[in-house]
């Protein structure tokens, strides 16, 4: 069953399409990712699905409720952790949770029980009565995740849950996310621009660039689209080897650049010994080195957008700065 359905959703800001006609579905119980560079439109998408922004056109349903016509029902069935902190930093952790629980009308018994439960889950029990201002960034993030869970939501939205956190804290939060998904059976939709995060967590993911979805599948399938592993062979002279390699039946694609020949194939580790069996003397070339690379989501991103995510971020930032300057001048 689809717990989220998005059809032709578009959001314009002064004529600029931040989200451009996107459609996708999220199945109940899965972890679904939106991967894209800065300014791709991830947050805008999340804000529309969580009823904080009104779409310019298109429609969406969350838990069967229309995001425009049944806002309160949508709001009741979702939890959300925003990209920027959204805590009252003059209250304690427990008070923040309590505020949330009361706002979502949990009765007193449930409230107390649930606060303990979620604190336990994110390991903040001993810090619960400290003012949030004195929390570290990672603790604040965990508290926000705990808060998003308070009212037993069916879907949890996480907008860049690990942005700006160190590697260890990030791992920790990944584990909470998996635990939540498995234990509490919550559907999770998260945005990120970390490749390894999407790869590690998501069952399916959409790559989003300039407000459009350019690819959507499981991380596995997305990588397979690239034609499996890449074996890079450094040879001399490259010309002779190139023509010889082109005849290899298991090589799906053979390309050559500055003395290095790339062979696309499946299960590359098993193909390296086969390469070594080729009679180099007879064919008149010499293999200098061999390396094997499994495709990463980075390669997938490159394939679909024509640039690496870092290049995309740099160019989007430049573009945003220009737009900002224009807005200021107006």
């Amino acid at each position: 069953m689809n717990i989220i359905e998005v059809k032709n959703l578009t959001k314009e800001f002064d004529g600029f399409k931040a989200v451009d006609n996107i459609s996708f579905d999220v199945e109940e119980g899965e972890i679904f990712g939106l991967l894209g560079p800065n300014g791709a439109g991830k947050t805008t998408t999340i804000k529309m699905l969580t009823t904080l922004l009104t779409p310019t056109s298109g429609e969406g349903r969350v838990c069967g409720f229309d995001i425009l016509k049944e806002r309160d029902k949508v709001r009741n069935s979702i939890g959300i952790v925003f990209q920027e902190p959204a805590l009252d930093n003059r209250l304690t952790g427990r008070e923040n949770l309590d505020f949330h629980a009361r706002l979502y009308e949990l009765d007193k018994k449930t409230r107390q029980k649930r606060i303990e439960e979620v604190l336990e889950m994110v390991e903040l029990k001993d810090k619960a009565d400290i003012i949030v201002r004195d929390y570290s960034g990672g603790m604040q993030r965990r508290l926000e995740i705990a808060r998003g869970l308070m009212h037993y939501p069916k879907v949890l939205f996480l907008d860049e849950p690990t942005l700006g956190l160190d590697a260890q804290t990030r791992r920790h939060i990944w584990d909470y996310i998996l635990k939540l998904n498995q234990r509490e059976k919550i559907t999770i939709i998260l945005t990120t621009h970390y490749m390894e995060e999407a790869d590690y967590l998501c069952r399916r993911m959409a790559i989003i660039d300039f407000g459009r979805i350019v690819a959507l599948d499981t991380p596995e399938n997305l990588k397979n689209i690239l034609g499996g592993d890449v074996i890079s062979v450094e040879v001399e002279p490259a010309e002779k080897a190139f023509s010889a390699f082109q005849k290899i039946p298991w090589a799906k694609k053979v390309t050559q650049h500055n003395g290095v020949i790339d062979l696309n194939c499946e299960q590359g580790e098993k193909k390296i010994p086969l390469l070594m069996k080729i009679d180099q003397k007879e064919l008149g070339f010499e293999i200098k080195s061999i390396s094997l690379r499994k495709p990463t989501l980075e390669d997938v991103f490159l394939h679909f957008t024509g640039k690496t995510i870092r290049e995309a971020e740099a160019s989007n930032n430049e573009k945003n700065k220009k737009r900002m300057r224009r807005r200021v001048r107006k």
Binding site: N76, L103, Y104
Partner: peptide, 13 residues
């Protein structure tokens, strides 16, 4: 400014 308004605005109240 501190983002807390989002927490209030997304609540079903």
């Amino acid at each position: 400014e501190f983002g807390f308004l989002k927490e209030i605005m997304v609540a079903p109240v």
